[in-house]
């Protein structure tokens, strides 16, 4: 996976922990291979190559990822949409390449999650229109951490934490026998790598953050970051950072992206509807949290830059 993966397993036996961690890494690598958007050999690439042509038989893993992605797309009214691949592939955040508006408009018609047809019985996936591209990058990291956690548990690990990039899945307690304490990155571009605005204690939960500071370039004085609005094909600009806390990391990963696009009001509504918690910093630097979080969150002095309304 094109990101830093860290796995911590708490166990009385070093051998047991190491074995479990190795198995978890293998699982993450397996998922990475299946879903890599840029590798021609991945199942996702196969699906993309056969868009508008024919259904592709895929593994249960890929079916599961796609179903979870579609679920979040439904929940966010299409603000999270893996078919954004048709447009996101036009951007290159390492080479500061932004497609022209014309190019974006031309491809916008390929962006619609409803055109992904999953046949569970035959385990096939079909993209209705030729030119469609699915990119599961917005959900595979979360999904991978969920699966890694499962593998750790199968290997007899009672407590652990998996971070695939910033997507975190924690279970049990930390080595000090306390709840896992997770920091939320300060979205301020001038902040240091490890500056956090707040910390949240959790267990048997996942936490994900989407922010406009993760991958971006500045062109003609305008900031272009990697979270694209499927409706416009342009970077979403209602939020600066969205953190979602829930059971499944695949859900929190995708939902953080979807809510980032939807904006704070809709976002908080969706969180409440789904019984989830979250922290949103919107473009006006307002810091909004779900009410349940009030007692569990510990703010740092960094959060004084933001207004809590």
């Amino acid at each position: 996976m094109n990101t830093i993966v860290s796995i911590t397993a708490v166990s009385e036996s070093k051998d047991k922990a190491e074995k479990a961690i190795k198995a978890a890494f293998d699982e993450i690598n397996k998922i990475q291979k299946l879903t890599d958007f840029y590798s021609g050999k991945s199942e996702i690439s196969l699906i993309n190559k056969n868009a508008g042509v024919s259904p592709v038989k895929v593994s249960g893993t890929v079916i599961e990822i796609l179903e979870k992605a579609l679920d979040v797309s439904e929940k966010t009214k299409g603000s999270f949409d893996i078919t954004i691949g048709a447009i996101s592939s036009l951007y290159d955040f390492s080479k500061n390449i932004k497609p022209s508006n014309k190019e974006i408009l031309k491809r916008l018609k390929y962006v619609n999650y409803k055109n992904i047809i999953i046949d569970r019985k035959n385990q096939t996936v079909f993209l209705k229109k030729k030119g469609m591209l699915i990119d599961t990058g917005g959900i595979t990291k979360g999904y991978a951490s969920d699966k890694a956690a499962e593998v750790l548990k199968i290997n007899g690990i009672k407590s652990g934490i998996i971070a695939v990039g910033g997507e975190i899945h924690a279970f049990g307690t930390n080595p000090d026998n306390k709840l896992w304490k997770i920091g939320i990155k300060d979205p301020d571009p001038n902040s240091e790598e490890n500056d956090i605005i707040a910390a949240i204690e959790l267990s048997d939960s996942s936490i994900s953050t989407s922010g406009d500071y993760q991958r971006f370039f500045i062109l003609d004085g305008k900031k272009y970051h990697h979270i694209l609005d499927p409706k416009t094909g342009m970077p979403a600009d209602l939020c600066r950072s969205v953190t979602v806390i829930g059971k499944e990391n695949s859900m929190t990963d995708a939902l953080a992206t979807g809510i980032f696009v939807l904006g704070p009001e809709e976002g908080i509504k969706i969180l409440k509807e789904n019984g989830l918690n979250g922290v949103i910093i919107d473009k006006k630097n307002n810091l909004i949290i779900t009410p349940e979080l009030d007692k569990k969150i510990e703010f740092t002095s960094n959060c004084s830059k933001y207004n809590k309304s």
Partner: peptide, 10 residues
Amino acid sequence: GGIEIDAITK
């Protein structure tokens, strides 16, 4: 940002 934490979500 001085809270001891186990991981950072970003």
